[in-house]
Design a protein around this nucleic acid. Sequence first.
DNA 1: CCGGACTGCGCAAGCGATTGCGTCGGACAC
DNA 2: GTGTCCGACGCAATCGCTTGCGCAGTCCGG
Lengths: 332, 332
Amino acid sequence: MVTMREVAGLAGVSITTVSHVLNETRPVAESTKERVLKAIEETGYTGDAIARSLVTGGTKSLGLAVSLVSHPYFAELIAAIENEATSAGYTLVLIDTRDSADSEQAAVRMLRSRRVDGVLLTPTSGSAALPELRRLGIPTALVDRLTLGQDIDQVGPENVQATSALVTHLAELGHRRIGLVTGTPGLATTDERVLGYRLGLGRAGLKWDESLVGTSLEPMLGSVTGVVVSDHQVLIDVLHQARARGVRIGADLALVTYGEVEWADLVDPPLTTMSQPVEEIGRTAVRLLLSRIADPERPPETIRLAPELKHRHSCGCHPTPASTTSHPPERR
Amino acid sequence: MVTMREVAGLAGVSITTVSHVLNETRPVAESTKERVLKAIEETGYTGDAIARSLVTGGTKSLGLAVSLVSHPYFAELIAAIENEATSAGYTLVLIDTRDSADSEQAAVRMLRSRRVDGVLLTPTSGSAALPELRRLGIPTALVDRLTLGQDIDQVGPENVQATSALVTHLAELGHRRIGLVTGTPGLATTDERVLGYRLGLGRAGLKWDESLVGTSLEPMLGSVTGVVVSDHQVLIDVLHQARARGVRIGADLALVTYGEVEWADLVDPPLTTMSQPVEEIGRTAVRLLLSRIADPERPPETIRLAPELKHRHSCGCHPTPASTTSHPPERR
DNA sequence: CCGGACTGCGCAAGCGATTGCGTCGGACAC
DNA sequence: GTGTCCGACGCAATCGCTTGCGCAGTCCGG
């Protein structure tokens, strides 16, 4: 690698000067500056982030510790994060938490030893890494899966009201027995959606029935006329199960779902989905983290971004501008 | 951050000893070793990869420079790569090439300054970064998009024979006018698939017709009875276009496609796809890169992994064990 | 002609690790 | 008792950069 010493030699100055022209940290005579710049050009000098970090303390890098396997919007989210980070001059160090507390712990340790300036984390349930990060005062922002506490920066979708709205929609269409198929139990996101489901039930004057909630459609198949699917992963299962049982979505079973998938309008019937602002979540997370790095004393923020209902046909009603305000027929 | 000095102080030894017990680079008395380990435990010492790298030269990190936006299997690929890298003790530095030569150049510069031990690259067309990497002798492996030359390590799908097989399948079903809808022109992958398409045409005794090849289904809609879709991105467009025009896939138009998407069997009809061994591509790429890092003199390898035909219904034939060997009716 | 202010740079001390070389005891052979 | 060897460990240089301090000139007012 070409070092500052070489550049300095070529330009006939000290490495001090080279450093100063590079960082513009003190005035350098125009003519000298030019010589240095030329030398840099000639040698193809890139600088050594390692050495620089050693002395400055910062690394201009952010750790991204997420669960690669289980994140439905992973690609989009990561792209948004990468963009935002890069344009702020930060590099991303990616590491998979594998959705296990141990891996997560190891991942964070790794990031710590790599001295990242901040960590973007999608915590697993029972995360031990989170308290550790806080104890060490490492700037951290949570993405997508949030904690109940308000004492840390976090960004994620609004789940309670949104899920409630999904239930409400089905109820307004006349459904009285509405099921909920959830994703991985124990995750904050899952819990919140269950909560929203109950809320929606309550608002529609319907009663909670434990047998209508589960991680699979199968058990509730006979007893339900509408179903809310709370997770992308599980959506695919649900669709398979319905097909296997000959249940026609939209006709026999109204379905509304989380997971704005690219194929939502390619299946039959097109899926009515709750679409999350993934990109905005990613962007916001990075901003939050960067602003915390800049000012560690700033009070933590919890940001909930509202998802958007994409009204299509799987809920059983054909989307017309005012469809949800009409009085649908009573069912069952 | 807790440094080796603190640990050494606590254990009552020199930092030299701490370093040696950590790296097992020279024998240390059992009792001393224990004291050091205990001190490490107590302080929560993680080591400082930055400082370590400065002296050792290596960083135990790999740069992953891919196009985030345009990579269909991105999530899977990256997960595979992350896994393999992590289990080899390497960390991933992720950066988006944005599929532009300039961004790519900047990305690689960045990785260079971060002193990654090797680079995994999905080159853009007209990549300037590639020659630079080679000139500097930075270990590099190409993923997914390959170059024609054999003088660099690279892993990707086999495209020519696979595309040819797709065409052959349609031809065997009796189609005489078979179109090709391609992804981004100029990419090596696209070129290879076009080549495979011609090859398949030739094998079936069909003639190349320029008007049957393009990046959109629309123009060839009337004149074609079967179509090969060479890219995930474009597949969605094609499906939309077909739907908009009232063309029934499988019945009016036989379709075979690249892009083994998770929803392939959820649409109607289920899609016959060429499924790429994404995970294996990722794993292999990392292995190739690591082995190059270990032995820079090893001759470069080009590895093509064969995709697998997932036979479903969109090609117009119902998949039965021996369906492709039967004699289908002549069409058109 | 002198002193102070300013401009333009270089010296050298770190940053936190690794590692070649040395030192220091004690065991053992003679 | 002395020499040798070996096991167990510490000293200090080094990696490439940043940055506090200080020094040499120049310019200008008094």
